[in-house]
């Protein structure tokens, strides 16, 4: 079997700038094949964005301690020199964000920004780069693309800006796209447009995508596999189908149960997960979910559970998966 295109081995990210070290990522193992989309889901502060930034080495180097290994296309990312790193960013791995205005420069037209980005990576003429920018705008379905290339980011609507940012990200033919909640701030009607566009581009360019979200629905629309993060660790991982139909980690089950959705009885109380996530500057010794878990027993608090393969398809970081079997589909009202 071929090696996965992107691979994280025991990734650790600790921020050391504050009073006590903040352990944002605590041993993440993740693989993404060529042409595969993996959704990373979890509540805020669980370490999703920090993980993505670690792949591009975007966390502030002086105040960050990194452990583990990041391999992309067979190359060790931690070992890249400055020049190789600049080529790697954008040329090999590109990133899109929730807020496109952070990625786009307000003082240049979109056409200039894309043309510039291409010419930073390849020795081609301005005119040719502009042609490619135009075809990218067509590809992400921006209406009147020729005219839109000459506009500034603030002159576009939210959905159009999101498309322009995707075009910019794809400008240098990356193999990997890191998407950090690119649809969270959008209206439902525009969100589904962008989700379907990403699916299409992924197929057409054979991209590997890591799609960060805290919306299970958005994850299902784009992802082959789903990884659930909690307190800096992946606590469950599997195909989208297995995660939705037969999850085995109590946190994943809790997330699915607490969703308000169409099939449920109106006015019934939701099965909320009580409590809140642990302090990353003071993580418990054992399972980080124990304080909120109704199945927690003493061993859970003593030892850090390993990811184990369950018989229903997912891998779960839990000591008591013998207690977590549900009827397939039960949790989503199927």
């Amino acid at each position: 079997m071929a090696d996965p295109y992107l691979r994280l081995d025991q990734l650790e990210v600790t921020f050391t700038g504050g009073r006590s070290p903040v352990r944002a990522v605590n041993g993440v193992d993740l693989t993404v094949d060529s042409g595969e989309t993996v959704a990373l889901i979890g509540e805020s502060g669980s370490g999703k964005s920090v993980t993505l930034r670690a792949i591009l080495r975007l966390n502030p180097e002086k105040k960050t301690r990194i452990g583990g290994k990041v391999t992309v296309g067979g190359r060790d990312v931690m070992g890249l020199g400055n020049k190789a790193l600049a080529q790697f960013r954008g040329g090999e791995v590109a990133m899109i964000f929730q807020e496109p205005l952070l990625a786009l420069d307000p003082v240049y037209t979109l056409g200039d920004q894309i043309t510039e980005a291409i010419r930073r990576h390849e020795p081609i003429s301005k005119a040719d780069a502009r042609k490619r920018a135009l075809s990218l705008f067509e590809r992400v379905r921006i209406p009147s693309p020729e005219r839109r290339l000459d506009t500034y980011p603030h002159e576009m609507s939210g959905g159009m800006r999101q498309r322009a940012m995707i075009a910019l990200a794809l400008a240098c033919n990356p193999k990997v796209l890191l998407a950090d909640e690119p649809t969270t701030a959008l209206d439902a009607t525009v969100q589904i447009q962008i989700l379907l566009l990403l699916r299409e581009l992924q197929r057409e360019f054979g991209l590997s995508i890591i799609f960060v979200t805290h919306d299970l629905g958005a994850a299902v629309e784009v992802a082959d596999r789903i990884a659930v993060m909690y307190a800096g660790r992946i606590v469950e991982e599997g195909s989208a189908r297995d995660i939705i139909h037969t999850p085995r980690h109590p946190y994943t089950i809790g997330l699915l149960k607490s969703r308000a959705h169409g099939a449920m009885t109106k006015g019934r109380r939701l099965d909320a997960i009580a409590g809140s996530p642990p302090d990353l500057a003071d993580l418990p010794k054992g399972c980080a979910f124990a304080a909120r878990c109704t199945l927690a027993t003493d061993p859970c608090r003593q030892t850090q559970p390993e990811l184990i393969q369950t018989e229903t398809g997912t891998r779960a970081r839990c000591l008591r998966t013998d207690q977590t079997l549900t009827r397939p589909g039960e949790l989503v009202g199927a």
Partner: peptide
């Protein structure tokens, strides 16, 4: 109708196939 069909599907075997409503508001 378009707004409601824009809700993401939670069923991996039955994902949304067509954009329910084109364009921005």
């Amino acid at each position: 109708t378009a707004l409601l069909s824009s809700m993401p599907s939670i069923d991996p075997d039955n994902r949304t196939q067509h954009v329910p409503l084109a364009g921005d508001p």
